[in-house]
Every structure is written in structure tokens, then in C-alpha cells.
Design a protein around this nucleic acid. Structure first.
Lengths: 337, 337
DNA sequence: CTGAAAGCGCTAACAC
DNA sequence: GTGTTAGCGCTTTCAG
């Protein structure tokens, strides 16, 4: 059987309260007593029981992170940011891989409801606003990465989607492109929507009309990008560049181009988003937008923890927007006439 | 304040014991009573408090997984296997990313000691056997993936490293290679050692001498592989193929070859291990060994849970070895004279 | 089939 | 500085 706090108390000849004080550095304890207790703890190889602690203190110092797919490097980098920021504040992180199942995503919220975690961070979450608002209203702590909430109870951290999309358009326009297709991500994803918005607005600013026929849905994955690009090609409309809502879609575009005998970048320029490692290794290297993934997670976590520890200052910033950087590589680095 | 079990009991006019029985489907409860209780639960929006449950029942139905780096797809696939197998048995998985720090890896064992989890799965763990044996002796449940333990208390699941390495040698020999270099992984890693053993033994069986000068350490990452390949080239010894202990090392070899003006596969053949997605996308596509990552995690988890639930049958298999498959791609698909 | 009550291991008043 | 003690919310004998 495991040792308990009374065992330590008995061995060191003090009360359980004193042992608890030593354990948590709370209250005053004479140096001599502290030493005695520490020795007993060592000698008995005592470990505090987490469940009892949690039950008594009504907090766990654990933060849950729900992620669509742990195997996508974009997400795992964000997790690292969350994790390190949390550790710095003595919080533990519980990573929950929803394995691309929205149902599982919901299931994990249970951890919040049953108090296994003190707060939950949802990365690129697709749940309707109402669900999140209701949770927040009930006093549950939620934070959002890659999705914005105008609910002041829900801090969020996103990237400057609109701005960097304008940057992409600027770049492509400079390379001589006039008709640019957009392949979007998952239906309803705010990142994808913002990118599209930035794209369209920026086209307009340059007097380039946005042709709705040149927009397709690519579901944020390679297969979706492939199918979308095939549909675009099939339409027979002229276009010379593709802005893909993420790199996976871009990879699908590569595949479709290869099959259709279209050369990148000579016939079609491609720009993705995320700076997935593959974009550097593939031939031709893919232009992309590098988002501060790690910081996305770290900053949100800082915000969230601050709010948990100082509920008084519930005002202040709730949405943090981080800058991203366009990386031009071979796939779009070709000047047209 | 959250609702508690007494609130449900009061509202439904029964005792807390009965509510508990309904909640856990334990003991007999009249259908009518059950309905009443369920209604009350619904009405109050009651959620059982996990900490109280854990404290009382002395188990958490949670399994921890410690992984060097969550951002390495080889590991995240294993996690998925673990996760799904665990879910099927109503266990929850807590993913712990050690972020490449051995210290953090150790730190996470705390979750086991303080009973936050019922068991811990260590993926490709580098801790000394003594540490693991001691934990197991104290009654803690541990499982190993990608590392073997001869301790019957510690189930483990590995791949057939020796055998598939022989397969790699066979393939390279058939393509006409006589002098093959080996670049190993992290010092002390059993996977890497087994691969080297299979490599050497297989060379011997074919009457090909193993030249110790053609072995270098590549630390399982691209930078390590790059440096190792540079050292190999610098030696000026003849060799026509490289067997890299994993794909990352292989990528480093690619880079070194590019710089040295060596063509793959004409001058140097390369074979990696892991079937990292990049190997398919890089030019030339890299030959590699596909390991059953998902199953590696899933099978071990099954073993582990079975032992937790039926401690009586502590005998039976403790080590499971899974088959892998050599995938020949362009990087080694070139017949030499 | 249901209820009463003990207690899981810990912390935090409160008293001294 | 230190000890006593009342719970945190739940499950589980043991009675009935």
C-alpha cells in the first residue's frame, strides 16, 4: 500500500497539517521541523495522492488541449507552445487527440465538466459558438487557438490571416498573375474564411476581379486539394496561380498538376500556408506562409492562466493576433510576361 | 457551484448510494428508480466529480504516454494506436510530450507515482532498466513500445528490427552493393542496436565483411545523419550504399550527397527506416522500412490493459514482435554492374 | 431493491 | 509554530 500523509506525520512526530505545510510551502514551519519531515518523506518514499489533493483543493493545475489530429505538425508545434508555457506556470498539460472525429472533440469537453482539468484549450475548434459560450457562462475556462471568439470570457490567439493573404496576393500580382484561384479549407473554419476574405479584398484593391468560379473547397487535406484542383482544371477557365488555404491542399494541387501535365511554376504558381516541412523538400519547393505556431500556443496559454489566477482583471486583451511571414520559394518564383 | 450526487439524490427522492449505482451500472436498481434518477441527473445537469471518484475508487482509468517528441510522426502514429486501443476499453489517455528532454521524461513518471494514471506507456524510452524494474517491483504498471524488457512485469511491443535489417541487406546485395555503410541512431537505443546487429549478421551470412569504419552515429535526426555522412565521405573509403537507422538520418545523407555531388541512387543508394511521409515526396523517393506504428501502440496497450484487469494471469506473452515491410523506392532501385 | 454511514488522502480553518 | 478536525464528493459494505 502507498504511504499516506499520516505515515509521514507519525514517523516525523508531527501532525498531518505540518506535513502538508512542508509539502506545499504554505504557512510557517520551523526549519528543524521541516528537515525532520523532509527526511521522513524521503525515508518512506512518500508521494502525495493527486486525487485527494484535487478533491480537497478543487483544482488540478492541469490544462487540457483538444486537437483534431496530433499527427499534423502544425498542431503538434502549437501543443509544444502550450505545454512549455503551462509548465512555466506549474501547470500540467493533458493532450487530447480527437483523431479527426468531431464527436471525440466534444467528448473531451467532459474533462472540463468533470473537473479533471482546470481549463481547456481548443485548437482550431469547429464547435458552434453557442456551445462555447454556454460553457464559459457556466464558469468553465476555455481558450481558443486559431479561432477567434468575441466572448470576453474566452481568450483566443490567432494569426493575421487577412493581412498575410493580402501579402500573398501582392506577391503573386508582382509575379504577373492576374487570375488566381483560391482553394479553401474545412467548411466554416474561421482561418480559412479570413484568408479568403483577405484574398478577395486584396484582389479588389488591385483592380483584379475575384472570379467565384475560381474558388473551390479543399478541406485542408491533400485529397481535398487534389480534387479541388481537378475541378478547377476541368472548368477550362484560365488561371495561372493557386492560393491554397494550407500546404496539404497545396500538395494535392501538385499532384493534380503533375497528372495534368502542368508545370509548377511555369504554368501554375502555387502558394500554401503553414510552412509544413514537406514544402521544403518537395520539388519544386513550395512557397508558403510561416505562422508562429509555437507562439500561438504559448501566448494563448499565458493569457488563459493569467485569467485563471487573477479573475479580478477579467478585462484586458482577450484576442491576440500574431504576425506571419510569407516565404517565397520556387513554386511561385517565376516572372510571367 | 457544481451539483453533487446528493443533489441528484434529493431531487429524485432516493439515496446517494442508489444514484451511484445508476451512474455506474453497478448493483440492481428498479427500472422505475433508474428512470427517476436519470431524469434528475439530466435536469440538474449533473457531472460526477472525477477527483472524488478517483480518490474513492483508487483508480483513474487513465493511461499516461510519454513520448520524446510529439512532433515526430512516427511517435504520433503510435500514440493514435495507443489512444484508440485504450478508448475501446474505456480508458483515457494522457499524452506527455517530453520535448526531447530526458529530464522531462523522468518528471512525467510522477503521474504514475501520484496516481494520476493507472499505468504508463513509455515510447522508445531511454531510461536505464533499473529504473523501470524498480517501478514495476513497487507495483506500478509500465508498458514499453519500441523497447524490449525481459522483466515479465513489463509488457513490451517492438518490431522485427533484426529481420528487416537482413531484408535491407538482401535487397542492397541484390542490387550489386558490396560495401554498405550503417548510420546508427541514438547511443544506446535498442532499436538502433538491433538494426545494426541484423545488418552485421546478414552481411556475414553473405560473406560480405562488415567494415567498422563504415559505421557512424547519426543520432536519429537529420543533422546527425548529415554530419555522419560527411564523416563517411571524408574517410575516403569506398562504399556504394548507406543503411540509415531512420529516415531522418537518410534525409541528412541526401543533403550531404547533394553537397558532395554524389548522385542518388547512381553513386550512392540510400535506405531509411520509418516510412516518414517525406520519403515519398522527396526527389528521389527514399527506400525505407514501413513499421506498423499504429499497431505497435495498439497491441501494447491491449497487453497492458489485459494485465491490469486480470492480474491473475500475469504469465503469458510479455513481448510482442510485429513484422515490418521493406519499401523499395528510387533511392536504392538501381542495379550496379 | 434501497438506505445509512464509513472513509478514500488531503488541506485549511481555528485553536492553542 | 504546530495540532485538531471538519469536510471535499464519491463508492461500497452492511443492514434491512
Amino acid at each position: 500500500m502507498d504511504k499516506k500523509i499520516v505515515d509521514v506525520a507519525r514517523l516525523s512526530g508531527v501532525s498531518t497539517a505540518t506535513v502538508s505545510r512542508v509539502l506545499n510551502n504554505s504557512g510557517l514551519v520551523a526549519e528543524k521541523t521541516r528537515t525532520k519531515v523532509l527526511q521522513a518523506i524521503e525515508q518512506l518514499n512518500y508521494y502525495p495522492n493527486a486525487a485527494a489533493k484535487h478533491l480537497r483543493s478543487q483544482r488540478t493545475r492541469a490544462i487540457g488541449v483538444v486537437v483534431q489530429d496530433i499527427n499534423i505538425s502544425f498542431f503538434s508545434e502549437i501543443i509544444k507552445g502550450i505545454q512549455n508555457a503551462a509548465f512555466a506556470e506549474q501547470y500540467r498539460v493533458i493532450v487530447c487527440d480527437a483523431d479527426n472525429s468531431p464527436a471525440k472533440e466534444l467528448e473531451y469537453l467532459d474533462l472540463l465538466l468533470n473537473r479533471t482539468v482546470d481549463a481547456m484549450i481548443l485548437v482550431s475548434c469547429a464547435l458552434p459558438d453557442e456551445v462555447l459560450d454556454e460553457l464559459a457562462a457556466k464558469g468553465h475556462r476555455i481558450g481558443l487557438v486559431c479561432r477567434q471568439s468575441r466572448n470576453p470570457l474566452i481568450p483566443s490567439c490567432i494569426t493575421n490571416n487577412v493581412e498575410f493573404s493580402a501579402e500573398v496576393v501582392r506577391h503573386l500580382a508582382e509575379m504577373g498573375h492576374r487570375r488566381i484561384a483560391y482553394i479553401s479549407g474545412t467548411e466554416g473554419n474561421t482561418d480559412s474564411q479570413d484568408r479568403m476574405e483577405g484574398f478577395i479584398r486584396s484582389l479588389a484593391e488591385r483592380g483584379l476581379a475575384f472570379d467565384p468560379l475560381l474558388a473551390e473547397n479543399g478541406r485542408f487535406n491533400e485529397a481535398g486539394g487534389y480534387a479541388a484542383m481537378k475541378r478547377l482544371i476541368a472548368k477550362g477557365l484560365p488561371f495561372t496561380a493557386v492560393y491554397a488555404a494550407n500546404d496539404e491542399i497545396g500538395l494535392g494541387v501538385y499532384k493534380a498538376c503533375r497528372e495534368a501535365g502542368l508545370r509548377i511554376p511555369e504554368d501554375i504558381a502555387v502558394v500554401g500556408v503553414d510552412n509544413n516541412r514537406i514544402t521544403e523538400y518537395i520539388e519544386p519547393a513550395m512557397s508558403t506562409v510561416s505562422q508562429p505556431k509555437y507562439r500561438l500556443g504559448a501566448e494563448l496559454t499565458g493569457l488563459l492562466i493569467r485569467r485563471m489566477e487573477h479573475p479580478s482583471e477579467e478585462d484586458g486583451v482577450t484576442v491576440r493576433v500574431l504576425e506571419s511571414e510569407l516565404i517565397v520559394r520556387k513554386s511561385s518564383n517565376y516572372q510571367r510576361d
